[in-house]
């Protein structure tokens, strides 16, 4: 008979039995074995009708099509750039996806657009079956991220750092006067005056560590106001 063993927001670990019966459907980090559905990672249960989803609470970034990522140039070739996207898979940015204007590849040094070590905000336009990742960086909101500070957080905490409808990130930008670009790959770029770049980095780390506390946005706003004042604009 169909049976469900978990409820919304339960924490599950790999191998936990979630439900029995073909009526239920596994989603996220859940898998079916015959009639039964199990969790494959440590995660949080989310039930919508017949769909039982496991939202992972840990894990490295695995690239997905349409993700927005912060990437770092690690190589330049004849046809474009090789980009580290904080994943086991490096990505390719072809010249045509990196620059809008026409480039004569025989006469142009590509490092004048993106040099080794430069950061960018880019979108994943394709990921092949054999895990070749293709990026685009030429149209808004994608761009080169010049200067600033780079920090790393767990990719599973990114939704919390962005907040509902972007509320958290909007507040961070407004209160600090910094420009912030968040990659779903866990890299975050912060640009302002150095003191404030440091304060925002520290605050984002706090959000990461305390992501489960209620009323976090207000708490963070208060701390940020205090810190910015103390740090001096």
């Amino acid at each position: 008979m169909d049976k469900i063993y978990v409820k919304d927001r339960d924490i599950v670990v790999p191998g936990d039995l979630l439900a029995e019966g073909l009526n239920y459907l596994p989603s996220g980090k859940a898998f079916r074995e015959n009639e039964k559905i199990f969790a494959s990672t440590i995660g949080l249960i989310n039930i919508k009708g017949r769909v039982i989803k496991v939202i992972p609470l840990a894990g490295k970034y695995m690239p997905k099509k349409d993700d927005i990522v912060v990437g770092r140039v690690i190589g330049i070739s004849h046809h474009g750039w090789q980009i580290d996207i904080n994943s086991a898979y490096n990505a390719d940015l072809n010249v045509g996806e990196g620059v809008s204007e026409y480039i004569d590849l025989n006469k142009t040094n590509l490092s004048k657009y993106f040099d080794i070590g430069d950061y960018m905000l880019a979108g994943i336009i394709n990921i092949s079956e054999s895990k070749f990742v293709k990026l685009t960086a030429k149209n808004r909101p994608y761009k080169k991220l010049a200067g600033g500070n780079i920090i790393e957080v767990s990719p599973t905490k990114i939704p919390r750092i962005i907040g509902k409808q972007g509320s958290m990130i909007k507040m961070l930008k407004e209160e600090s006067g910094c420009n912030v670009a968040v990659g779903q790959n866990g890299w975050i770029w912060i640009k302002g005056i150095p003191e404030n770049e440091a304060i925002v980095a520290r605050i984002i780390k706090t959000i990461e560590a305390e992501s489960h506390t209620t009323g976090l946005t207000d708490k963070i706003k208060e701390t940020l106001k205090k810190e910015i004042k103390r740090g001096g604009k």
């Binding site: 927001r9 339960d10 924490i11 670990v13 936990d16 440590i42 949080l44 609470l57 840990a58 919390r160 907040g163 509902k164 992501s211 489960h212 506390t213 209620t214 976090l216 946005t217």
Partner: peptide
Amino acid sequence: VQKQALKNSYKGASKNGE
């Protein structure tokens, strides 16, 4: 014991964030 150790380590996560 293994399962409990994992659940202890992530127990904050089940509280609703926002």
